[in-house]
């Protein structure tokens, strides 16, 4: 009897894979927590400058993004090489900003609307002309809380 059981023990030296899903789930939850859903495909060059006086944007749902920069090479045939504004996932005109902001506003609960801020993700090589126009439009629309997106610089 004892001899019989011993033999079976040698024949099954399998590593248990039962805890493997748990490990993968842990990884999955880690990534779900530290990352954010990609909101749009960026169609402009978007190398933001670096700065030191940075504020972190707290609530992602209260932020809308305005991208500015030269269109990427594969869009240059259609959209030219001048710096363009991108709202959501398409190129847009400055006049379309109020509608874009309103669309975002309507998705935010009413009591949180004063906290809405706009993140301006502007390529460093862009000249101030388009940035000024966008800023003027934002002021006219009443969106006064803005954030110039920038990378951290250590000095």
């Amino acid at each position: 009897m004892g001899k019989f059981t011993k033999k079976r023990g040698i024949a099954n030296p399998e590593v248990s894979t039962a805890s493997l899903p748990d490990i993968i789930f842990m990884l999955l939850f880690f990534f779900m927590v530290v990352t954010v859903l990609r909101d749009a495909e960026i169609k402009v060059n978007n190398n933001v400058p670096s700065a030191t006086e940075l504020t972190k944007l707290e609530k992602k749902s209260l932020v809308n993004y305005l991208y500015m920069g030269k269109p990427l090479e594969r869009f240059q045939a259609t959209y030219g090489t001048k710096p363009r504004l991108q709202l959501g996932d398409k190129f847009a005109d400055i006049a379309e900003i109020p509608l874009f902001l309103e669309k975002h506003r309507s998705m935010v609960p009413e009591n949180q609307r004063p906290g809405i801020s706009s993140s301006l993700r502007v390529d460093g090589a862009v000249t101030m002309g388009i940035v000024t126009d966008v800023k003027t439009q934002l002021r006219k629309t009443g969106q006064l809380k803005i954030n110039y997106s920038a990378k951290k610089r250590v000095d």
Partner: peptide, 28 residues
């Protein structure tokens, strides 16, 4: 299955933290 989910999240999300210079514009 868990790997599939993990890869899905890896593809659809970005890690970048959004930081920037906060500015309050004057009303128009």
């Amino acid at each position: 299955i868990a790997f599939l989910l993990l890869i899905f999240f890896l593809v659809t999300t970005t890690i970048d933290v959004d930081k920037g210079v906060l500015v309050k514009l004057p009303p128009w």
